[in-house]
């Protein structure tokens, strides 16, 4: 097989990574943007989403689509609820002090991780995809007598992977509409711009914070439910999404939703392509290098606005 089909395959794999990454990173970005909280436990909310998805799928049984559909609803709700509770019981008591919330969310990371290890165990477990028709992709080649289509061996994707991309795009559009078009979005943006003035105009900032923290964690959990039929649920699976989310959020500009999505596509695709042609480690090295360059030459991120 020539390079073209390989490249297409790598791009498709990268696009799945990008879709899931965009959801996770938007959650992180939302929490930082509105609350100014650097949530180190974000990756663990992702992991919890996957683990709860496995549990729900086990409990429901029957056709895999049933369990998956239930997980798609239940896992983000449970994780979002847990996060909102963590906000009200822990972060609120620290007055959202930037340094102390970092330490607190590091603590939260270990608590969630170890509780999962003690209950769910160290195994990696899959959730069956609700559907997964293999779709062969044609490629064109030049043979004697002109161009012709053929189906290279191994060049394929599944209907499920395409559905992940579509679902991620739909959810991201939903988040954008929520922020830009609804009253609750208006309240969140006002809180983000000036917390004191939000209070002075009757906005219940504490409730907004609990909602935003829950929403951010719920997005991570939703991303994990989408990916768990492709990659398995494991108690240590939160580290990579956390690192990549931070990379994406820094490159895109903290608190900027469009920037986060663009950076997620960039990092997800390059991660997929470089991982296939070279090595996953090199992909991480390049992504981290990109962060360093962005921080040196454009500290506010590609789409961020410089603080006045």
């Amino acid at each position: 097989m020539e390079i073209g089909p390989y490249f297409l395959l790598a791009t498709l794999e990268g696009a799945v990574t990008a879709a899931v990454l965009a959801l996770t990173a938007v959650g992180l970005s939302l929490v930082f943007g509105v609350m100014r909280v650097v949530n180190i436990a974000h990756g663990e909310f992702f992991m919890l989403g996957a683990v709860i998805a496995w549990w729900v799928a086990q409990a429901v049984g029957g056709h895999p689509a049933l369990g998956f559909a239930a997980a798609l609803v239940i896992a983000p709700l449970i994780v979002g609820g847990l996060a909102a509770a963590a906000d009200m019981t822990i972060l609120k008591r620290l007055d959202y002090d930037p340094e102390r919330t970092i330490v607190a969310t590091i603590g939260l990371l270990y608590v969630i991780q170890q509780v999962t290890l003690m209950t769910y165990g160290p195994e990696a477990r899959p959730v069956e995809a609700p559907f997964g028709t293999r779709l062969a992709i044609p490629w064109i080649e030049h043979a004697e007598g002109g161009w012709r289509l053929y189906w290279p061996w191994g060049l394929s994707t599944t209907s499920y992977k395409l559905a992940v991309m579509a679902a991620a795009a739909a959810v991201l559009l939903g988040v954008w509409a929520l922020m830009a078009r609804t009253r609750i979005g208006l309240v969140m943006r006002a809180t983000q711009m000036d917390r004191g003035m939000a209070l002075a105009f009757g906005i219940p900032v504490e409730r907004v914070y609990a909602l935003v923290f829950g929403l951010g964690a719920g997005l991570a959990a939703l991303a994990a439910v989408l990916i768990v039929p492709i990659r398995q649920a494991h108690y240590l699976m939160g580290a990579d999404p956390l690192l990549l989310s931070f990379i994406v959020v820094i490159i895109g500009g903290l608190g900027s939703l469009p920037g986060t999505v663009v950076a997620a596509v960039l990092i997800g695709l390059s991660d997929g392509i470089i991982s296939v042609f070279f090595s996953p480690t090199l992909a991480k090295i390049i992504a981290t290098l990109l962060v360093a360059l962005v921080l040196v030459f454009r500290p506010q991120g590609l789409f961020g606005t410089r603080a006045a």
């Binding site: 208006l186 943006r189 711009m193 004191g196 003035m197 209070l199 002075a200 105009f201 009757g202 906005i203």
Partner: peptide, 24 residues
């Protein structure tokens, strides 16, 4: 009252430096 209930009681505030919601 908690801070967000104070304005609801009927207190309007024009702060120093205006502090508008700048992007709105």
């Amino acid at each position: 009252l908690p801070a967000h209930m104070v304005p609801r009681a009927g207190l309007g505030y024009v702060p120093q430096g205006r502090r508008l919601f700048a992007d709105l």
